[in-house]
Design a protein around this nucleic acid. Structure first.
Lengths: 253, 253
DNA sequence: ATATTTTATTACGTCCTACATAATATTGAA
DNA sequence: TTCAATATTATGTAGGACGTAATAAAATAT
């Protein structure tokens, strides 16, 4: 009881649950818990931290949402490695993102595809390049718009994977789901591309990161333009403040 | 009661709390809630969703952790705009990131700084460039290592801000806090830089995004190398699986 | 009648108890 | 020894209770 009061005095504007959440993280850190190790049971934690089991459960619920822990009946609460972009899945999946956030994400996607060239080159190998090559050849034979779009996504996904950065791959996977709403590339637009996928593959074999980046920038030219249009479209609807619509994708569940 | 059973039958491997979390998000979406609007009180939500108040509270606790809502005594639960990178603050601040995650983040930083050139150029203006110029001049006069480091961070932060992407700025702010552990750049290393901040500013005035990217890549050469070393260092300690250490920064709480 | 103080209400924050359930541990039988 | 039945245990869920702070309502004073 006194412990609670002390803590409340200490940080008067923070709720007990939030404080407990931090306490648990500190507890984990202090006790040098390893990955996959099991935390004390809820009641023990409650006793240790001087709060009720309810509070501990709410704190654990938060930590679970943030991807720190997994809980299984009877077995207990086990620590897992928080995958950085996993939490974003919930946020992106909610359909509650604001206009600004969407804009940021679209930009982020372009930024990532341009910026990751060095890592693609660091880990590139003939097998992966051949895989991309195969996609390109299928694309060139392709006549249907849906199929082409799928191949387009596959190609870019492949590049992300080549970067050997798991967080990036996860992130891209999420963005794919998000941006299928305004489709990435139609068959008609392909012809207009200044740089084709074929060129990119060639550069991947014989070029260098810098050349690849430049080529990729040209390849994404249409996307950049679309992003600018997107901005202008939403600039008008920008009411800001109180009445701003949270739900951007009304139809989407 | 029956509602619960139905839902459990439906998705047997998901907990009621998680289901309720989704239900609340759906509720928000369905009822077209706006930003800053107030959700029904906990008991009402519980009745509506057919669960107890405890469950609703745990679900709300998760949503709060994810940055969807804020709760105030008596007033109720208000919707806020989930800032994409805000949740990462908790994760990064926990000091519980695994080796892989740290590697990903370090790479991500480099990727972002290279990739955002186009947006920097899109929004650049003389005032901002003059601000950077001023930093450069201070750097060149600077003799103390700490001060130099601060200016270095300030310069790069300025670039992020020029991109007009709030998520990026937040993200960079977080990373700054994280990567001060292995310091970004010492005074001694400055001389070795292939491209200086001064060159970058000059390109910002007279160059184009492509040239700026290339220059930035050279400027970050040391960082890239350091990142590679970082990888090799931790490759050895890589035990994977069970015993992997979660806490990377022992001393840092 | 307006302004200020006091009271009352309300909804969140916290605690306690109870019990169902599933996973584990233990015991017992073949 | 192996497998089945039982007991235990920790999480999952529910309901009730009460303190407290923020708000609304009422009463008082100016």
């Amino acid at each position: 009881m006194t412990a609670i009061v002390e803590r409340i005095d200490q940080e008067c504007n923070i709720s007990l649950v939030e404080q407990t959440q931090k306490d648990i993280l500190k507890y984990i850190s202090d006790h040098d818990y390893k990955l996959n190790s099991v935390l004390p049971k809820e009641q023990e934690l409650a006793d240790t931290l001087g709060v009720s089991r309810v509070i501990v459960r709410e704190a654990l619920s938060s930590l679970r949402a943030l991807g720190f822990i997994e809980t299984k009946r009877k077995k207990g609460t086990v620590l897992i490695a928080p995958k950085i972009f996993n939490v974003l899945k919930v946020i992106l999946g909610s359909g509650l993102l604001g206009r600004d956030a969407i804009k940021d994400l679209y930009e982020l996607r372009l930024i990532l595809e341009l910026g990751m060239a060095d890592f693609i080159f660091r880990y590139r190998n003939e097998q992966d390049i051949a895989y991309l090559q195969q996609i390109v050849e299928n694309e060139e034979k392709c006549t249907e718009s849906d199929e082409f779009r799928e191949l387009d996504i596959k190609f870019h996904s492949g590049l992300y994977q080549m970067s050997q950065n798991k967080s990036l791959v996860e992130f891209q996977y999420l963005l794919n789901g998000l941006f299928t709403l305004y489709p990435p590339q139609t068959l008609g637009e392909r012809k207009e591309d200044l740089v084709t996928h074929r060129t990119l593959v060639k550069l991947l074999r014989k070029g260098n990161p810098d050349a690849f980046r430049s080529a990729m920038r040209l390849h994404l030219e249409n996307q950049f333009n679309r992003q600018e249009q997107f901005l202008q479209t939403y600039e008008k609807n920008s009411l800001e403040g109180k009445g701003e619509s949270l739900a951007l994708f009304d139809g989407k569940r």
